[in-house]
Amino acid sequence: MIDNLLKEILRDAELSSKYNISEEVIKKAKLAPPYENKVIEYLAVIIKSKMVEMHGDITVYNKVKNLIK
């Protein structure tokens, strides 16, 4: 159910164009790793943390902040 949310955001024309996300990739996109693309990982972590694990905003931020080193 939540996977659909991820896919809908990835279907945004500007986002998919800037990060070269194909329809093929979008169809396969899931909240669970492995991720095809850094943006997908970033977005998946936000969605999973906030909407599945029900974390607070600060925890969500700290999780995504650690994705880019």
Partner: peptide, 24 residues
């Protein structure tokens, strides 16, 4: 660089989330 990339991706996702909500 990681700070810049971090902001870049976060801003892009924020904008995409706004547009997606309207589109959906």
């Amino acid at each position: 660089k990681e700070y810049e990339i971090h902001l870049d991706i976060a801003s892009d996702i924020r904008n995409a989330a706004q547009r997606t909500r309207v589109r959906v």
